[in-house]
Amino acid sequence: MLRKLLKYELKATSRTFLPMYGLLFLFSIAMLIMFKNPSGTFGTTPMAIIGFLIGIGYTVLVTAIFVMTIVISIQRFNRNLLGHEGYLSLTLPTTIAQHIWAKLLVSCLWVILSCVALVISVMIMAANDNMMRVLSSIFSSMGKATQMYGGSVWAMGFSILAVIVTALLQCILGVYMAIAVGSLCPKHRVLTGIGAYTLGGIVQGTVGYFFFRGFDRATSADGILAGWFQTLSASDNISQVEFDIRQMHMFSISLGSIAIFFLVFCAIFFVITHQILKNHLNLQ
């Protein structure tokens, strides 16, 4: 059933996003053509005006994609589950957990794809021989780093990815939790939702402060992780490569801890949302 929910969720949302991405790429190509003049100037005033309008259009589109990604994530959860479409969605033979997962995964996908679309549009606009050389040197540097430092580079890359993904998930789940809490108070839904989101942020910030303060104390001179931390930080009698690898491990472990922190709050927000929709639903 989750696969079917994902299919229809993608269908419902791709109608908005795909045309926007298509338009973005068209404007990028137009920008490339308009601004390809090596002198950097336009031949005529009308061309200058067109170039200006295309530039404005591109900026507006980028802003629209950013805003729509957030709006649609919120709107799909709110309308499709707690609005009039909820009379259809919540009477399907699926669990509440499946509904939440379907909305969450598709929202994440569109955030990632929006970022990818933006990067591609920038690459289109900047397309020239130099860019190919820059890209090729980036890839060859990554290859050399992997040869020199082995799996540590990949571990660092995965830990950065883990933090980004878990941060994204907990942001979206925080919004879902706020919407679910808001539904408990129909007369003041929006206010209650904003209050719940703010409270969630305060709790997360407070816990995060004590978590990282605890980590800092544990790795200080007389902390329980002092020995481990000193081993990783020591540079005596080891090669520069070995020292760099240890630094990368420390970086990966630190980021991994942050990802786990975000994951814990993902679970908390998910459970709250699930419990409210399963046991306290009152569809208006």
Partner: peptide, 9 residues
């Protein structure tokens, strides 16, 4: 009817 459908608690 909504209670039977699980749309109300």
């Amino acid at each position: 009817i909504k209670l039977i459908n699980g749309l109300l608690t």
